[in-house]
């Protein structure tokens, strides 16, 4: 009988949580938060093992959750190398991480990534996020999804590359370029977060 007193509130609580009529937050990493899992090794398409701390430079780190099979990545891809160049010139390390663990046998394997990096002449690290563990702790939801950290590895910008995936010539708001420049110049980054459409991350099953 005593068990009922213990179990009944528990069941009620679970029932309430399951049917709570609220929109749930998606838990993206907050501005100011430290880069999590920065000392976890990932494998680059070159075969090199590295960590986010290894990739970071004196002014910070740029992480782009990207993949091989998303039309939005394809649309923005012409801006990948120019952004890598800008980041490096400004003392910011850059890495693209592939979190599509659920699609490793559908075009998202390390071999596929290597081919993509060669085809598109990636001038930055492109590493496999095994089990999408880094994407999970970052609260990444889509590809591409940008996270920019300062020299203390604190998040200063999160979101989109710019406001026009399809046409680089018609970009009105180059969010990421502005954020990189403002970070290096010590200016307030504005906006600190943006949104864009993208392919949902293919989480492991």
């Amino acid at each position: 009988m005593k068990k009922i007193y213990f179990v009944l509130p528990l069941i009620c609580a679970l029932f309430l949580i399951a049917f709570l009529p609220l929109e749930k937050p998606m838990d993206e990493l907050s501005i100011g938060a430290k880069a999590p899992m920065a000392d976890v090794e990932v494998t680059d398409v070159s075969g090199e093992k590295l960590t986010l701390n290894d990739v970071a430079r004196k002014n910070g780190l740029l992480v782009n959750f990207s993949c091989n099979t998303c039309p939005w990545v394809e649309a923005w891809e012409d801006r990948y190398n120019p952004i890598a160049k800008l980041a490096k010139e400004n003392g910011i390390g850059i890495i693209a991480l592939n979190p599509n663990a659920g699609y490793r046998n559908k075009g998202e394997s390390l071999k596929d990534m290597k081919e993509r990096a060669n085809q598109s002449d990636y001038q930055f690290y492109y590493a496999l996020d095994k089990g999408a563990k880094i994407a999970k702790v970052f609260g990444a939801t889509r590809t591409p999804h940008i996270f920019l950290f300062n020299s203390d590895m604190e998040l200063v910008y999160r979101g989109a590359i710019d406001d026009n995936a399809k046409n680089a010539d018609k970009v009105e708001q180059p969010y990421l370029k502005n954020a990189i420049k403002d970070l290096v110049m010590g200016n307030q980054i504005n906006p600190q977060t943006t949104k864009s459409l993208g392919c949902t991350i293919k989480w492991p099953r």
Binding site: E23, R142, K195, L197
Partner: peptide
């Protein structure tokens, strides 16, 4: 139109990943 205005109109809680249902 622009992604951000569209996303926020559909839901402030939506990050932009597809599919999205409300």
């Amino acid at each position: 139109g622009k992604d951000e205005a569209f996303i926020n109109t559909v839901s402030e809680k939506w990050t932009g990943a597809l599919p999205f249902s409300k």
